[in-house]
Design a binder for these strands. Structure first.
Length: 383
RNA sequence: GUGAGCGUAGCUCAGUUGGUUAGAGUAUCAGGUUGUGGCCCUGAGGGUCAUGGGUUCAAAUCCCAUCGCUCACC
């Protein structure tokens, strides 16, 4: 079993801080995991990821790695860590989300999902057993179960059936996990995923099903798919009340900085989101005083750093004007510098959150930070 | 110099036998993006239709002149 040690707790809220240890080192929580779908955090090399951004764990993707480069290459390489030269922990999403968001042709069956590749249209059949097998070949420290991520809106009857399917698959995931072992000499762990859309009775049933099967950690999935943000907070709050206190809780695919702080406040320990990297590549910069849309003409001759409170490589060396120039000129460096800054901002945010929880002043700090990072955006919108 | 062709948004071009307020792509400006395709989506600004005259109820469209560009031939 994965050991998760809680070392600090907020009294005013459900926020907690702690750490867990894997075969590739310790991860402090709450933590944000940069997304490296295809075995690379886009535009950011491992040296910056490690030394400047101080990422403790990255997320990669079973669906994508299975299609390319394929498990055979990964096995020959000795696993994903060696293949990509990243010796810290890796979590892999099962690919369930991609099967439902990317694949064009897909067919849900009781024992798995049939889909055609978004790369070449070739047909594949993902079962819980197969997805565990692929993640064994990848050698991720934390593997995720195959689930169905419900869309939004999602009518109740659909959600009932989908949640039942996810629960049934969870059993098969667990069996496959127990019947196989790591290929590379270190332990791998398996997280279950709670679904149930926005329906509390389904969330409760799903959580109880998944807890009964028993996993090394528990993810909350199917959120941040278009529902109102207050609904998301409400479901997170409701679900973490059911999940075991001494297990890791992972809110999948979330989110904006303020979403992360609100979810930490409601007892979440782990996050991943494409936003800092994808939006970074699109000139959308997160700062301590709000959003900068880096292509905007107002930065043409703004030689200030992106964020005066940031100590990242980009902020230490380059100006807004230069970054804007790189974006307008479609230079590759723009993507790299922005991704480094945004990831640094996210990792620094959760690092500060850990400190504030230890000091037991997280709730007040959180409100202050959210006010700072969102008030600027409101004033821009009002103008 | 002679002949032919072409001048429509910053750029590349549509625009029917003359018929509402001249369009598109791109660029510019501004929004969006939540278990990743550098993608994509949305909106806005931008035109004395080379210039001047004429025909007509009505001209980017037809006629004349001027200017500019391209090609061919001297």
């Amino acid at each position: 079993m994965l050991k998760f040690s809680i070392s600090g707790k907020e009294k005013k809220s459900k926020a907690r801080t702690g750490y867990f240890e894997t075969g590739h080192g310790i991860v402090e929580t709450p933590i944000f995991m940069p997304v490296g779908t295809q075995g690379t955090v886009k535009a950011v090399n491992q040296s910056y990821l490690d030394n400047d951004i101080k990422a403790q764990i990255v997320l990669s993707n079973t669906y994508h790695l299975y299609l390319r480069p394929g498990t055979e290459v990964l096995e020959k390489a000795g696993g994903l860590h060696k293949f990509i030269n990243w010796q810290k922990p890796i979590l892999t999403d099962s690919g369930g989300y991609q099967v439902f968001s990317l694949a064009e042709l897909r067919k849900l069956k009781p024992d798995g999902v049939e889909f055609s590749s978004h790369l070449d249209g070739s047909r594949h059949f993902f079962t819980p057993e197969k997805v565990i097998g692929i993640q064994r070949s990848i050698g991720s420290d934390i593997m995720m179960v195959l689930d169905e991520c419900t869309p939004y809106p999602c009518d109740y009857d659909y959600a009932v059936n989908s949640t039942e399917l996810t629960s049934n698959w969870a059993v098969l995931n667990k069996e496959a996990f127990e019947n196989t072992k790591s290929d590379y000499g270190y332990e791998q762990y398996l997280f279950g995923i709670v679904q149930g859309s926005i329906y509390k009775d389904l969330r409760e049933k799903s959580a109880k099903d998944i807890i009964n099967i028993g996993f090394d950690g528990y993810a909350v999935g199917g959120l941040a798919v278009g529902e109102p943000v207050d609904t998301m907070y409400d479901i997170v709050d409701f679900t973490t009340d059911i999940l075991p206190e001494d297990s890791l809780r992972y809110l999948m695919g979330v989110g904006r900085p303020e979403n992360i702080l609100e979810a930490i406040d409601r007892g979440i320990d782990m996050f991943d989101c494409v936003m800092p990297t994808r939006n970074g590549r699109n000139a959308y910069l997160f700062t301590s005083t709000g959003i900068l849309s880096m292509r905007n003409a107002q930065y043409k001759d703004d030689f200030r750093t992106i964020d005066e409170e940031c100590g990242c490589y980009t902020c230490r060396n380059y100006s807004r004007a230069y970054l804007r120039h790189l974006f307008i000129a479609k230079e590759i460096l723009a993507l790299e510098l922005s991704s480094i800054h945004n990831l640094h901002f996210y990792l620094n945010l959760v690092r500060e959150a850990r400190e504030k929880i230890k000091e037991e002043i997280f709730s007040d700090w959180k409100n202050e930070i959210i006010n700072k990072i969102t008030s600027n955006n409101k004033s821009i919108m009002e103008e």
